[in-house]
């Protein structure tokens, strides 16, 4: 079913109930049938802020599609999130990111919630949107364009400048820039001078993720000639210290060839998540 078809179906389902109590009954049913969410994943980084009841939301990306799972300690909230998941799970990042979530208004959900619950709903929607935004495929990557030798020559200096820009952004936990840390898995610039970056973090669930992604975007956009930036956040392959650049290793005092590969001054690096 396409996204539009699915939304139409939900609107249709909802319109079957005239009384709000019946609509709640329907949401409660949805909540009860929501796929179980592991207790171990009810961590603070998955908690959505702005809800009176607690809501956890997590997702994975498979074949370019986002799959969500979630839970809440309040059942109506759980029904609402179940509704969102049934509509948006299994869609591509582009589909979700470009959707206006207007169907929520069509079923009158937002207006009929208490203000605190309505805020919670907005927070849930924003979290889903943010996940999609972070996984959006770049236009740059999609057209498999062939660059001529001249194009490459023209783009080369820009490429260097983008790398310099990336080196301005520091990991929130390790005092090394994200480029030398090896967090950038792919860097492309197309003819239209749009930059595509595929990158990761040293650990999933980085609480600073949004800030770092934003820093990357702002920093790269500042490079003269760049017309757009698309960032894909991936956690595969998983980052490890073998991806550190030579400079970074020197800076951190890590010798990979050394069997023990302990940092020379271990106390300094405690808490950086390198072990």
């Amino acid at each position: 079913m396409t996204l539009e078809e699915k939304k139409a179906e939900v609107i249709d389902d909802f319109s079957m109930y005239e009384e709000w109590l019946d609509k709640y009954e329907y949401l409660i049913e949805l909540g009860k049938n929501l796929e179980a969410y592991p207790e171990s994943e009810k961590t603070d980084d998955k908690l959505i802020k702005g809800c009176q009841s607690r809501v956890w939301l997590d997702y994975k990306v498979e074949d370019g599609k986002l799959f969500f799972r979630a839970d809440s300690d309040a059942i109506i909230t759980k029904g609402i999130i179940s509704l969102l998941i049934s509509v948006y799970s299994g869609r591509t990042a582009d589909e979700i990111a470009s959707d206006d979530f207007g169907f929520i208004e069509n079923i009158g959900l937002k207006e009929n919630l208490s203000p605190t619950r309505a805020n919670g709903l907005v927070s849930m929607i924003n979290t889903i949107k943010a996940a999609a935004e972070a996984n959006r495929k770049s236009a740059a990557k999609e057209d498999d364009e062939v660059l001529s030798a001249d194009d490459v020559k023209a783009l080369a200096p820009m490429y260097e400048n983008v790398v310099l820009a990336l080196k301005q952004v520091y990991d929130p936990e390790i005092p090394v820039n994200i480029y030398d840390l090896g967090l950038i898995y792919e860097l492309n610039i197309n003819k239209a001078r749009e930059v595509y970056i595929k990158m990761t973090f040293t650990a999933p669930n980085c609480p600073m993720a949004d800030e770092v992604l934003n820093d990357v975007k702002v920093s790269v956009e500042d490079v003269p000639g760049v017309t757009g930036v698309k960032i894909d956040l991936v956690f595969e392959p998983v980052w490890d210290r073998s991806m550190l650049s030579e400079e970074a290793r020197l800076e951190l005092g890590i010798d990979l060839d050394d069997e023990n590969s302990e940092p020379s001054e271990p106390t300094e690096y405690d808490g950086y998540g390198l072990h």
């Binding site: 109590l21 709640y24 309040a74 059942i75 109506i76 919630l113 619950r117």
Partner: peptide
């Protein structure tokens, strides 16, 4: 087994104003 907020929300639709939280 029931969340206070769910109760308050349903009671509201029944015309009853109570506090939850």
């Amino acid at each position: 087994g029931v969340h206070h907020e769910d109760l308050a929300l349903i009671l509201d639709k029944m015309g009853i104003a109570v506090r939850s939280g």
